Computed example of a mutant assay.
Amino acid sequence: MSSNEASYHHGNLRNSLLTTASTILQESGIEALSLRKLAERIGVSRTAAYHHFKDKNDLLSAIAAQGFLTWQQQAEKTFDEPEYSSREKYQKFVHDYVEFAHKNPAVYQLMFGSRLWKNNQSSEELKSVAYPSFQYQVALVKNLQAKGLLPQSEDPLRLAQVTWATLHGIAQLVIDGIYADASHLEEMCQCAVNLFLTSEQNQIVNK
């Protein structure tokens, strides 16, 4: 065992591996990431790395899972802010979602991309945080419907899927740089908020 390995507590090595792997992913992409290179960069043996992740796919799933947890914590913090109205909280939620994707493009694409999901390569760890993350958005939609901020006539699940798909589309366009770039983020997010939440005004007019 190397001195570096000895200096790590059990949980600290896994966290260090994840943090460093995320950095490599952001810097150089998936192809540049391997457990061997990761172990070398941290200064531990490959055996130590394999103790925490059985293969590269397991490592990628763990990175994606951490991405979901980070985003979830950010969203929950937004909706726990007592000084903001429900409308203001949702507006911040939309802006923060796209900003998260813009600042963490490699992790975001791993979270939602086909690399882990299309061929059922996602780990149980990843599923255990990704699925509840979407259920959180469904619960959010139901809450905003109850407050009259989103259309009450729409099925909550379908509305959650459509609003999420819209945000994902904006995020992906910005990441790819095809039709938009970072300078468009604020206006695009605000446009989405205005479209999603027009029901508040429409319902008042129709009453």
Rank of each mutant, 00 (worst) to 15 (best):
L195Y: 14
Q26H: 14
L25Q: 03
Q26P: 15
Q161G: 11
T198S: 14
D96I: 03
L13Q: 04
I42Q: 03
V141R: 02
T23S: 15
E81L: 06
T78F: 09
E88Y: 05
E187P: 01
Y8T: 11
V138Q: 06
S86P: 08
A39S: 14
Q190G: 12
I175F: 08
E187T: 09
K54E: 05
V162L: 08
P156F: 08
L59M: 01
L110D: 00
P156L: 08
D96W: 02
S85G: 07
S86G: 01
L33N: 03
S28H: 14
L69Q: 05
K92Q: 15
T20L: 10
K54S: 05
I175L: 01
F79Q: 05
Q109I: 00
S128R: 08
Q201C: 04
K92C: 11
S114K: 03
F68H: 08
G177S: 06
A180L: 11
S28F: 12
F79D: 02
I175C: 05
E154H: 15
Q137V: 10
E40M: 13
H10D: 14
L18M: 08
Q172L: 01
R41H: 09
I63L: 03
S122E: 12
G29C: 07
A171G: 02
P82T: 07
E154Y: 11
N120V: 13
V138K: 10
E40K: 15
K54D: 02
A6S: 11
M1S: 13
K54I: 03
Q91I: 08
N202Y: 08
L195F: 14
W71T: 01
Y108H: 10
P156S: 07
T166L: 08
E27K: 10
S85L: 06
V162M: 09
S183F: 09
N57D: 07
E187G: 12
